[in-house]
Amino acid sequence: MKILVCIKQVPGTNKVEVDEKTGVLKRNGADSKMNPYDLYALETGVRLKEKYGGTVSVITMGPPQAKAVLYEAFSMGADEGALITDRKFGGADVLATSRTLSQGIKRFGDFDIILCGLQTTDGDTAQVGPEVAEQLKIPSVCNVQRIEKVEKDNIIVDMDMPQDIERIKIYFPCLLTVQKDIYQPRLPSYLKQKETSKKDIDVFTFSDMEDQDENKYGLNGSPTHVQRIFPPVSDKVQQHWQGTTEELAVKIYETLKEKKFIA
């Protein structure tokens, strides 16, 4: 079984601020790390490999330094890795990202299962996974909360839906996005880290892509445009209420209603 896990390097902290005057994004510190949600996808991939055999590959898209997350994945049990990087890919939105990723995946190899984390901590959209599946024309299931078993040409999983859990058989090749806490991610291993620190990785640039239309990548290939960023308006309220029982009960009730906790 060939498993691929899509991972991303994200800022080490979410504590970004917008400079009110200039509208420029201020980041605190230059630290970066693997998207925490991807750890669950990677863990799922490695567990599947341990149970059913096969290989786990990892792929990421980003600047050259993003290869750090590939090596981190090696120390958690991934076997090979590829980095998609090119200045032409800069400024990509969800569509352009999923297109670039799927082009990179095609170049990287054929996979039975592609695993993605539920979302990233920086973009926060949870959309790249399903869009990659669409670009690759393969079936997808999101919000997978449990893997039941793998059969010859399919995998059976539980999909978390609002009211119930659907048991789903999905045929290979397929893409799954897994929920947080599907498994507790393992810690990087020192032994594996030493063993894989010099491992070769594949690097794919624009010239490696099957689709050579420059207008489909990066900023040009992105239908959505960010017009401006601004700090959120704090809606933190602090009110102190006193009164008769009846008055207070009504006030709480109205507040619950206004905040849509009751209809």
Binding site: A126, E131, N143, P162, T224
Partner: peptide
């Protein structure tokens, strides 16, 4: 943005090569 909408919207957007803004 329910469990269904969060899967269906991106696939549809990708099919039409159009933009989708989440949440």
């Amino acid at each position: 943005a329910t469990s269904v909408g969060r899967q269906l919207a991106p696939r549809t957007a990708a099919r039409f090569n159009t933009g989708l803004t989440a949440d």
